[in-house]
């Protein structure tokens, strides 16, 4: 079943007021052939990780605009490791200053996509880097 679709969780941790970008990305990835689980606004890191675990996703995409990324994103990565989900590819998108991107990389965020990123870039990166979940 090599052509099984990749399963992606798009999540918005924190207190962002809108999720336009996350929805655009979710829809775009759908059109790229991904199965996209969307969980909506105002998710705690614990909720994100519980959803990733239950859905057995290959990828988590975290969208964040609020400026709280240096708190929330490392917390998600730490919880993932705690739950043994360290083989899940984690990427981020939103408004994240360049200075923080390196630091986030060290906590487990594989890639940060800034404004202007195309859907195709994201899709190609995920296809190239996600584990396939059908190990068993």
């Amino acid at each position: 079943m090599a052509d099984r679709p990749l399963k992606v969780l798009i999540a918005k941790p924190g207190l962002d007021g809108h999720d336009r970008g996350a929805k655009v990305l979710a829809r775009g990835l759908r059109d790229e052939g991904f199965e996209v689980v969307y969980t909506g606004l105002r998710q705690t890191p614990e909720m994100v990780v519980a959803a990733a675990l239950q859905e057995d996703v290959d990828v988590i995409g975290l969208s964040i605009l609020s400026g709280a990324h240096m708190t929330l994103l490392p917390r998600v990565c730490a919880l993932l490791r705690e739950q043994g989900l360290d083989d899940v590819l984690v990427v981020a998108g939103g408004i994240i200053p360049d200075d923080d991107v390196m630091a986030l990389g060290a906590t487990g965020i594989a890639r940060v996509f800034g404004p202007g990123t195309t859907i195709a870039e994201v899709a190609d990166f995920l296809r190239a880097n996600a584990r396939r979940a059908d190990r068993a």
Partner: peptide
């Protein structure tokens, strides 16, 4: 599932997150 691309939006969980953990 999209009959065109094979992709899907799985959005039911949005409403069920109150008991996520």
């Amino acid at each position: 599932t999209s009959p065109i691309t094979g992709g899907a939006i799985l959005g039911d969980r949005v409403r069920m997150q109150a008991r996520a953990t």
